[in-house]
Amino acid sequence: MSQSILNLLPSKLMQLFQACDVETNIEGGDKSLFEAQLNRAYTIKAVESTDKEIVDFLFTLGCYKGESVSVISVLSDTYVIAVKDARYSIDADLSKAILLF
């Protein structure tokens, strides 16, 4: 009994306290990974974010202009993507930073 109550705690807490939503600032008409179809290989047009660090980091993973990327699945607000033979889980915000052709 008490176990099930405790398991619910995280989600209950979420509802009790007003959650602080993360804003997104990437706008524009370009199609991003966020809108990509599952299981289709796309070519990256650009990786754009105000955070240059993450752009550099994505580069070292092989996620940069001209490279191929696919969305494997969408799980609990995170995107599982395939880049250069590896699977990464990225959040929805980051998926908006990866623009596609």
Binding site: V22, E23, T24, S49, D51, I54, F57, L58, T78, V80, A86, R87, Y88, S89, I90, D91, D93, L94, A97
Partner: peptide, 9 residues
């Protein structure tokens, strides 16, 4: 404040 999440699976 925002932060990105990326993790290799």
């Amino acid at each position: 404040s925002r932060s990105f999440f990326i993790l290799e699976l």
